[in-house]
Design a protein around this nucleic acid. Structure first.
Length: 479
RNA sequence: CGGGGCGUGGCUCAGCCUGGUAGAGCAUUCGCUUUGGGAGCGAAGGGUCGGAGGUUCAAAUCCUCUCGCCCCGACCA
């Protein structure tokens, strides 16, 4: 039945992903190594995710601004751990205007340093705090191996950068972003369930005090870091002299945070919901939510079908993102397949038989084939679609959540661990060191994805060291 | 940076081993017939075979060098 050129997930998951990106028209490789062209359909999805994030970021009190693409290399050098973490992957600009530059610039891999330099100028008093700024930007990290959306040398993202008077306030900000912005948008808008927690020392951001993350589980059992939020402590404040005067006239360093989500979210979306027939999109991030395919044999039928189509869609404007596919050189069957590959949640077919009966055929993308197809009355169609879109959104989330639950395992021995970690998240009691974590990575390719916020109610034995602890960790192989 | 593979119309590839006038399918354009799950027939346009050098009467094909891309391993949102 599926005559697509899409590789089956069971055969080669990685190739399946590339096929979806290609055939759904999301992105393609460019003339620059590791950099993709995001095509209109892929970009439209990103815009919906971006707009949802942007709205939430603003609702939580932040404002947008913009800082330069180029950063003086000397800025990057100021924070020791930071430069150590990023040095291998920065691209440098050494020549411009036909001459060698006196100061080398780097293309931003992230903007803590140049934003820190501004904050040092802007902040004087406790009255200036907090500073709550976000920017939407492109960044570049020279990656060795890239995959569309999941890891590209240049990617689009937002990076929030805030400065606070106290550690508690910075910590509250860091966690608020993780829960109320990132987890909330990813789960409710993208219908992708996530785990939340803290990163291990080994996995935290270069220069941060603590890093928190949301992690999603893909259909192949590998985890994907979907967003990170860092409490930077006073590290960057010390490096960039971001200081303020307290109420009682003391000079103090600020506490700063940074947090980001990127076009990688599009990759998460693809891998969380799609199937062997193509992309599957939750309605809230579907550029086209409803497509209408008219069916007719001759000009006479064409006239009445198109008239009926415009009648049933008359009150759709402002309610759905929809399209009438009136291309007349393509067969209905071709159109069905095309819109399925592109992930459109709901398809309406309307033809002579429907006009005679006052019905339309309606199909839902999340339930392929006959199961998801029904014939319903034209009367009340708009209301029906509105409800169906909500139902699809919820159903996709629940399906992904069920998958995550069924692929999360609690184990107590290293032997069980090695077997289960190939299938999904593995929750263990954990009292190991960074060296232990390295060893596990070497032996199993798995790393700590998050250390959950909630500790276990009772003590348990670390699956590796045998020591007693209340701390748990979630391991998985990851993208 | 190691290991493997590939460069031939827009796309996917055959042809290369064994040198002799560049091919197919898809796509495109036009015409007619079609349209409820990827339509059919007919016609047309389109390639200095990644690049450079060499061998030869003759190179997509053999030799040397070079460039680029993809895939697999060590870094990462």
């Amino acid at each position: 039945m599926a005559k697509t050129g899409i590789t089956l997930r069971t055969k080669d998951y990685s190739q399946w992903y590339l096929d979806i990106v290609d055939q759904a028209g999301l992105a393609e490789n460019s003339g620059v190594r590791g950099c993709m062209v995001i095509k209109p359909h892929g970009y439209a999805i990103w815009e919906l995710i971006r707009d949802a994030m942007d709205a939430r970021i603003k609702e939580t009190g932040h404002v947008n601004a913009y800082f330069p693409l180029l950063i003086p290399k000397s800025y990057l050098m100021k924070e020791a751990e930071h430069i150590e973490g990023f040095a291998p992957e920065v691209a440098e600009v050494t020549r411009a205007g036909g001459e060698d530059l006196t100061e080398t610039y780097v293309i931003r891999p992230t903007s803590e340093t140049i934003i820190g330099a501004s904050y040092a100028k802007w902040i004087r008093s406790w009255r200036d705090l907090p500073v709550l700024i976000n920017q939407w930007a492109n960044v570049m990290r020279w990656e060795m191996r890239t995959r569309p959306f999941l890891r590209t040398s240049e990617f689009l993202w937002q990076e929030g950068h805030t400065a606070h008077a106290t550690e508690e306030e910075a910590e509250r900000e860091t966690l608020m972003i993780l829960h109320d912005v990132y987890a909330d948008v990813v789960e409710r808008v993208m219908a992708v369930p996530v785990l939340r927690g803290r990163k291990s020392e080994r996995e935290k951001f270069a220069g941060a005090l603590r890093t928190y993350a949301i992690e999603a589980l893909m259909q192949d059992g590998k985890a994907l870091q979907a967003g990170t939020s860092h409490n930077l402590g006073q590290n960057f404040a010390r490096s960039f002299e971001i200081k303020y005067t307290t109420v009682d006239n003391r000079e103090e360093y600020c506490w700063t945070t940074s947090w980001g989500v990127s076009t990688r979210l599009v990759g998460a979306l693809i891998m969380a919901h799609s199937d062997d027939d193509g992309l599957v999109l939750p309605p809230q991030v579907a550029p086209i939510q409803v497509v209408v395919v008219p069916i007719f044999k001759n000009d006479e039928e064409r006239g009445s079908v198109m008239e009926a189509a415009s009648r049933i869609t008359a009150d759709w404007k402002g309610r759905f993102r929809w399209k009438l596919d009136d291309r007349d050189h393509l067969s209905p069957g071709f159109k069905f397949n095309e819109w399925e590959v592109k992930g459109v949640p709901v398809r309406i077919e309307i033809g002579p038989k429907d006009i005679a009966k006052g019905t339309v055929a309606i199909s839902r993308r999340d339930r392929p084939g006959r199961e998801g197809k029904a014939f319903i009355e034209q009367a009340g169609l708009t209301q029906h679609i509105t409800e169906l879109l909500d139902e699809i959104q919820l159903s996709l989330y629940e399906r992904a959540q069920r998958f995550q639950q069924e692929h999360t395992f609690e184990v107590s021995t290293y032997e069980e661990f090695q077997q289960r970690v190939e299938q999904g998240f593995v929750r263990v009691y954990w009292d190991g060191t960074s060296e232990d974590e390295d060893r596990i990575k070497t032996e199993t390719k798995a790393t700590i994805r998050v250390i959950p916020f909630e500790t276990a109610e009772r003590e348990g034995m670390c699956f590796l060291t045998g020591r007693t602890t209340k701390q748990q960790a979630i391991f998985a192989r990851s993208y």
